[in-house]
Design a protein around this nucleic acid. Structure first.
Lengths: 341, 341
DNA sequence: TCACCATATCAAAGCGCTTTGAAGAGGCGC
DNA sequence: GCGCCTCTTCAAAGCGCTTTGATATGGTGA
């Protein structure tokens, strides 16, 4: 059933029916009610393609996720992020369009998204420090919000980001306050911007106490359980092993824990661990006393807010780029304690 | 730049340009090359909305994910699944449309998806044993593939599923062969179909050896790390605790492991564990000798195949419902050993 | 009574593409 | 030179909606 048929059925013109359903003022209230009732009764919804063609609005937001052959891991955080985003879209009547692209043809895909008119806005995931997509998207002229930042670029685009540097600085400060002096970092992939910021945070806190960075205590890679495990094994085999480790994610922390366990070391006594906790649904680090001391920020919440930002920018295209910085909270758990003397 | 402008620029009619770009035979090869070159040069891609309206095809597949308030966890498997699916879509030129819905208005959303014409096919996630969506989608008349099955319904729809029952039966048989007699299951939520099948598999294997099910050894819930932990703590406190545990996922297995560590128990000696491993990117259970003995089946691969199935059904709507059963492999790791005597 | 205005409805154009049916351009045999 | 056929190209209609500008209707004040 299309608009024309519905109009005939109602003995009205398509114009009036369209206006009635879209809430225009120039239609009689009684007529509107009649139209709405009929639409509901016959189960009418407007054809999205026709509507998109006529209005030029897609009523959809694109999420573009780079998945290269070299780091083909799917971000475990992604599921939570889009769940949050979809809450916002649902409320606003927007759809969500997901595109996973190889790095190589990413530029082309963005251009296509625009030219084909499929989306009104874009959320950019996993930015690099000098991410080319930001210039590209600006040139393309589609509203976009970056989840994360590109540190090497001028700060004049819209983004939402957790304060990675500050969070990891605080985590390190906490360990320093407990007397630790050999503090390791098992970081995410350091071509990613967030990982660089985290590393900076750890180093800044140490430098403030006059502690020089030891490259042997800095590890990075895809944030898998295995990374945590192998990095910890290697570091603990050093002549002067770390007494504390900062972990880039809960999954990594689990690997660290496994390595320590293999060694017969107790978490929070011989070795302390602070993890970053994205508050994922399936890996909650909760309870009265969480297992891990952690810097926590909900990625789902970030998704919701990112979506709201992009919707806002679509509503008001002339507004300055929105920027949201989320502070992580530092929650104390069982995995940290005074440095062994 | 639209088709008309491109046609003018080429001194051709829109008809010819359209045909040239869409590979119709009735256009001169020289003309086609000229058109293609021009299209590339000016960066033309057809407007998706106009194309959709004209062809009636959306060139998009919808993934609908139920996210209720009661079990609001995002499936950690989802990310890998859609990564696999998007590989297939990319090749076929399809887009992916993601919808997360509350259980309540799910039916309405499916109907809308159809009426609005946004998608040509649907992938259904997380089916229940008597899932109403299957009848609904059939009535709606949109090609669909279920990831999983609805055991209580007639088996006449398209699905792709891992052989949950057989996998968990094999896992249990393995433990039985090692001499275990007290075998526990930490299962996923048993309103979900896959969880019921898994439980069946465990019970079948035990029954074949004349072992009756002990309700105290059957636990289920959202598949979190915490579930594994608490279930294990409780079971191990029983007068006659289990010597082996089958885990519904790697994340759950990590929780089980944590509980056993707390107890000072060594994995694979006092207590054996077999996990189901979805082969997720961030939780690889690999290496020469994996940590966990596991039933393994790649969920990413399932996503890719599900996508191919739905595309096939769109190509040939009259074909019988495709059904794909994936067998998990049983890989031996360090987490299983002979039952303590 | 008439002009005037606000209100409620409509006809028709247009969004950018595909596709049907028609027509122009050559090549061939007679 | 004519008719016929094949190979290319084209004009125009149509997909289902929104939106502009016009039209009918009834109420008001002069």
């Amino acid at each position: 059933m299309n608009l024309k048929q519905l109009a005939e059925h109602l003995q009205l013109s398509p114009t009036t029916v369209s206006r009635a359903l879209n809430g225009y003022p120039e239609v009689n209230e009684a007529t509107r009610l009649r139209v709405e009732a009929a639409a509901r009764a016959v189960g009418y919804s407007p054809n999205a393609w026709a509507k998109g063609l006529a209005t030029g609005r897609a009523m959809a937001i694109g999420h573009v996720m780079p998945v290269s052959k070299s780091h083909e891991m799917v971000n475990p955080v992604f599921g939570d992020f889009i769940t949050g985003a979809s809450e916002a879209y649902l409320r606003a009547g927007y759809d969500m369009q997901l595109t996973l692209v190889d790095d190589e043809d990413e530029a082309m895909r963005y251009r296509n998204l625009r030219r084909r008119g499929l989306v009104d806005g874009i959320i950019v995931h996993a930015p690099l420090p000098a991410d080319e997509r930001i210039a590209l998207l600006r040139e393309i002229g589609l509203p976009f919000v970056v989840h994360g930042r590109a540190s090497e670029l001028p700060d004049d685009y819209a983004w939402i980001d957790m304060n990675n540097r500050r969070a990891f600085e605080r985590a390190t400060e906490h360990l320093l306050a407990l007397g630790h002096r050999r503090i390791a970092l098992v970081n995410g992939p350091e071509r990613q911007d967030f990982a660089l910021r985290r590393r900076e945070g750890v180093l800044t806190a140490q430098a403030a106490q006059g502690i020089a960075a030891d490259p042997a205590l800095l590890s990075s890679g895809e944030m898998t359980e295995r990374l945590g495990y192998t990095a910890t094994r290697e570091m603990r085999a050093l002549p002067d092993p770390p007494t504390a480790i900062v972990a880039a994610s809960m999954v990594v922390a689990l690997g660290i824990w496994r390595a320590l366990r293999d060694e017969g070391v107790t978490l929070g006594r011989e070795v302390s661990v602070v993890a970053h906790d994205d508050d994922l649904g399936y890996l909650r680090n909760g309870g009265d006393v969480p297992v891990f001391t952690a810097t926590r920020a909900s990625v789902r919440d970030a998704g919701r807010r990112a979506a709201e930002m992009v919707l806002q920018m679509i509503r008001d295209p002339s507004c300055a780029p929105l920027q949201t910085l989320i502070e992580a909270e530092l929650i104390l758990g069982q995995s940290t304690g005074r440095a062994p003397s």
